[in-house]
Every structure is written in structure tokens, then in C-alpha cells.
Amino acid sequence: MQPYTQNWTQVTQFVMVGFAGVQEARLLFFALFLTMYLFTLAENLAIILVVGLDHRLRRPMYFFLTHLSCLEILYTSVTVPKMLAGFIGVEGGKYISYAGCLSQLFIFTFLGATECFLLAAMAYDRYVAICMPLRYGSLVSWGTCIRLAAACWLAGFLTPILPIYLMSRLAFCGPNVVDHFFCDASPLLALSCSDVTLKETVDFLVSLAVLLASSAVIAVSYGHIVWTLLHIRSAAERRKAFSTCAAHLTVVGLFYGTLFFMYVRTKVASSINFNKVVSVFYSIVTPMLNPLIYSLRNKEVKGALGRAFSLKSWKRQ
């Protein structure tokens, strides 16, 4: 990194490289990512619709699931459409303004942090439901749910404020080619001609705080859940509950594992291509899998979907 001088011109626009190494198969990748994106939208919109229409699903667990579905739609929509435009060579598809780049990074970080906190709130909800069923109504009332959801969104919104402010103070006066498919912190720091030590340290501490706080709540909640399930006498009920917990923890593990790898680091990443693959998992694959794991495998949700889209329901209307 070279020292910044007043003679250099501040970069006003970035060029997104995306997946430059797959140009020969770009249409195949475009079709693949478009299918995944549309599938993610359809799944999550279906969940929001069916929970809103079916009064039998108006319970705290499904209240949190609708928030998760809203997050997944927004989370993928921040990055995927721009990436798809780059694949097919849409005019301006590979370009993003400096302000647009920082805005994308802010929104992406905000939504990612909110999802971490929301997953922790959902784990707490399941802990109370399984470990303290007699007190569930008082501990997880509608007022509590609304406050928890609001706290998740607020905490998520506050998370990127300091990191983005520090990013805005850096000078970008040399190459403007971002070797990624969205404006992430690591490839942007690699382009800065300022001293990024403070920025890297703050990013590390903020990411560590968010991930450790939320994952600790999830770990403690599921630890108590597993302990409770081990004392269930019915083998069939125990297997069913363990199966549900294992499915949930698989997606949580994938999401948190990739986030810990990507963001709890103090140095700019060296393997950019590997980082892109990891980013695809937490920004595209996991949002597509979450509805299947958390909702669409659920018998109540499947039943509600059947009622919502059945011909008989339409005829009654």
C-alpha cells in the first residue's frame, strides 16, 4: 500500500469483476444463480403469504419465521441482481458508484447482522417452548416477540455504522477493480491507498462481537434443548425432536461457519476466488435452504400451503 497524497484523484466508480474466470460458461452460471434467486424469492414469499393468511400459524415461532423470510428476500436482492446483470453484460452491470458501493456494503452488513440476532431470538423461542412449556405464554408473549424482533432489526442497523464510517474515510486513488461479485469489505480494503489497520481492527471486533453474542445464545439455548430431549422417555418423540434440531443446526452451522471464516479476521483475504465461493454459500445458498429447513418441511406450514393454494379455498372465495 502506497501512502496517500493530495495529488491523487479519489475513485468515484468501481468495476465489479464478479466471476471473471467462468466467462465461457457465464450463461450457465447466470441460469443457475437466477434459478436459485427466483426459488429463494418464491419460497420466502410463500411463507410470508401463508403465515399472514392462516390464523392457525399466528404464533411466535411463525412470527419470527416471517421476519426471517423478509430478511432472506432483502439479503439476496442486495447482491444477486447486480451479479446477474454482470453475467449477461447489461450496460452498467459491472459498474457501481462509490456511494452505491458503500450503500450496498452497509445494507448487506445490516441485514446479515440482523439475521444473526434473529436466529438467536428464534433459538430462545424454541428453548422456552421445549424446556419451559408451562411458562411459554408468559415468557414469549406477543409483546415480547415484537420487542425481540425490533431489537434484532435495530441492533443489525447499528452494527455497520462505525465500519462504514471508517470505510468512507479511506482514500481510493489507484485501481478501481473490485475482485468480487459485490462490494465486500475485504476486496475494498485491498484497493485503498490509506492505512487500513484501524479499519481492519474495527471490522474484526464488530464481527466478533455480533457473531459471538448471537452464537452464544444459540449454543446455550440448544444445549438446554438437547439436555431436555435426552430426558424424554418416548423414543419416537425424542428422535423427531432431535431430527428437527439437527436440521436447524445444520443451516445455522453453515451460515455461522462461513461468516466466521469471512469476517472474523484482521487481515485482508489472500485467496479471493475461495472467498467468492464462501460468499456464495452465505449470501445465496443458505437463504435458499433456510425456508426448506425452517418452514417448508414443517407439517403445519405444508398443511397451510395446501389449504392456501387448494382449488376449494379459491372456490369458497
Rank of each mutant, 00 (worst) to 15 (best):
S97W: 07
L41F: 11
F172K: 01
Q13V: 08
L102F: 13
V177A: 12
G86N: 05
R238N: 11
L57Y: 06
F108C: 03
M36F: 10
D179R: 15
Y124W: 12
V301T: 09
Y222C: 04
V280Q: 01
T79W: 07
Q10H: 08
Y124A: 06
L166V: 01
F260H: 06
E24T: 08
M61Y: 13
K312V: 09
C193R: 08
G21L: 08
F33D: 05
L259V: 04
I272R: 07
Y136H: 14
Y165M: 07
M16Q: 09
L111T: 06
F274H: 06
A241S: 13
K315R: 13
C145K: 02
I164M: 09
L102N: 02
A150W: 06
L162W: 10
I164W: 02
L57R: 00
I96A: 03
V140L: 06
K299P: 15
S168L: 02
V80E: 00
L102I: 07
W153A: 11
W142Y: 05
F30E: 05
F110S: 04
T250C: 12
S283L: 11
A304C: 06
K312T: 11
V301H: 09
Q13T: 14
R58N: 10
V206D: 09
L166S: 03
F39Y: 10
V226N: 05
K299Y: 12
V285A: 15
L254Y: 03
T35Q: 07
T228S: 15
E300L: 12
V226H: 09
A171V: 03
H67S: 05
V285L: 15
A190E: 05
L134S: 14
